[in-house]
Each structure stands twice: as C-alpha cells, then as structure tokens.
C-alpha cells in the first residue's frame, strides 16, 4: 500500500520558491472507508465528508456505491479519480450484462478492477478501492486494492485518512491479533462474527476516527449485503444500536429474489 504514498498534505512553502511550478493533476480529498466480511454478509462503509487540506468541500459526498445485487464498491483518495473509476467500472458491468444476461460475480469484478487500475499504471487513478459483497459460495467477501491494482481477498480492510487509526483496531477485533483464547477454548476464526457485533465495530471505528482525524466526519453510509435467504431481523427487526440511524433496503438491480442490500445511514460529528 505504500507504493503510492500521497504527497505530504502541508508542503513547506519555502520549498515551493525554487521548484519549477507544474500542474499537479492530483488532489487528496480525505475521508475513510472500511469493509468487514461475515459468514453470510458483508458490511462496507464510508464517511460522507469530502475535504481538501483544512477546507470541508461538502458534508455529503458518496464514497460507496452499489454495483450489483452482490457487490458494493468504495473508493478513497482523489475523489475525481474515484468517481470516474466507479463510473467506468459500471459501464463495463453493463456491457457484461448485455453479453451474458447476468450480473458479474464479485470475484470477476475484483479481477476487472485490477486490470482497469493497472491499465493506468503510468498515470494511476489515485484511488484506494475496496470491494465488498457475497461470493459465488454465499460467503461474505472483501477485496482491497492499491491504486495500481495490487489486490487480495481479506476478512476486513480500512483505507483512507483514518486507515492508521482503524486498521489496528480491526486487526485486534477481527483477526484477534494479540488475543489468546482461554485455555481449552475454541481457536479464533476471523470472518465469523455476528452482524450486530460487526455493525458495532464499524460504527465505533468511524465515531472514533471522527474524534481524532479532521478529514473524517459529517455522516456515515454503511452498506450491508446479505446472502440469499439470510434473515434480516438482526438488522431491520432489532431496536437499532443508535438513534438517528436509518435503515433502507435498496431494490434489486438485477432479477431480484436473491442477495439483499441495505443502506444504513447515521450522522457523525461535524466539527
């Protein structure tokens, strides 16, 4: 992930004086994204603040997008690159549907994402991409990418301005790093936590990141993709975790009657 480190945000002004002044086609628009896979669901989330340096450009800009009935994409980094990358990938998915009369699997979308990112190897999309969804076996899946297309499937991934705050927390809570099972207890297996626990982790990650990272805040959009036939009671039925939290089911994009996607939105602090 360090292959493409962003330029330092607050450059020393004395350095600018003796440098050739050239057009810089990149910017960095803050925010953070995060995805966690469960056994039969995936949660993928992003905050809605878009900023540049110390300025908040808008308090509501989307970073997470539904691609198919079983795949959601999140981008972070340079917003213009992220938005245009999503737009291009949606185009490719439409042509795939024209040709095959079905939606692309998350595994295939992941490989497509790699090809498209690496295709811009020498003028990269400055976008960290995370895919979340349900794979062909009905298991929750998360794929994470660097801006030039290196990717792997994981149980969870955080990216963006608060990556350094959130990822260690997830390493501990999802991968059970630095935890030891009680003597005689079952060994830990990542990717098997219940939805309510995962939702709590995601929301805590973002509220905490909002406290300590100026580029994160304003609002949280959290997509839950559920396996075909899975109960939705633990999301829509329960007395929800936080007030002001809204849950809405997104209609099927394809034939329907299979995987279901929900959008959970809640406010984050605006300061």
């Amino acid at each position: 992930m360090a292959l493409f480190a962003p330029p330092p945000m607050y450059a020393d002004p004395t350095m600018a004086a003796d440098k050739q002044h050239a057009f810089n086609p990149y910017s960095e628009n803050g925010g953070s994204i995060l995805a966690i896979a469960g056994a039969d669901f995936t949660v993928i989330a992003g905050d809605t603040r878009q900023s540049e340096g110390y300025s908040i450009q808008t308090r509501y800009a989307r970073k997470v997008w539904q691609l198919t009935d079983r795949c959601v994409i999140a981008t972070n980094g340079f917003a213009a690159d992220g938005n245009n990358f999503v737009k291009r990938i949606k185009q490719r998915l439409e042509w795939y549907e024209h040709a095959h009369q079905k939606q692309m699997s998350i595994k295939a979308i992941a490989r497509l994402t790699q090809t498209m990112l690496y295709g811009n190897r020498f003028f990269p999309y400055f976008a960290y991409v995370i895919l979340g969804g349900i794979d062909e076996d009905g298991t929750g899946a998360v794929y994470s990418f660097d801006p030039i297309g290196s990717y792997e499937r994981e149980a969870c991934r955080a990216a963006g301005a608060a990556q350094s705050l959130i990822q260690p927390f997830l390493d501990n809570q999802i991968y059970f790093r630095n935890q030891t099972p009680a003597p005689g207890a079952e060994p830990f297996v990542p990717g098997r936590l219940p939805l309510s626990t995962v939702l709590g982790l995601v929301i805590d990650s973002f509220t905490s990141a909002t406290e300590r990272e100026i580029a994160v805040g304003d609002g949280l959009e959290l997509y839950v993709v559920m396996k075909k036939g899975r109960t939705t009671d633990d999301l829509v039925g329960s007395d929800n975790l936080i007030k002001n939290m809204q849950v809405q089911e997104l209609g099927a994009l394809g034939e329907g009657g299979s995987e279901r996607t929900f959008l959970v939105s809640l406010p984050l602090k605006r300061d």
Binding site: D69, G251, A252, L253, G254, E255, G256, G257
Partner: peptide, 10 residues
Amino acid sequence: DISISGAAKR
C-alpha cells in the same frame, strides 16, 4: 411477477 424482475419493479 415483479419478485423476479428488478426491471419490472422500476
């Protein structure tokens, strides 16, 4: 049968 067609629903 709109339950099997997202397009019909929309």
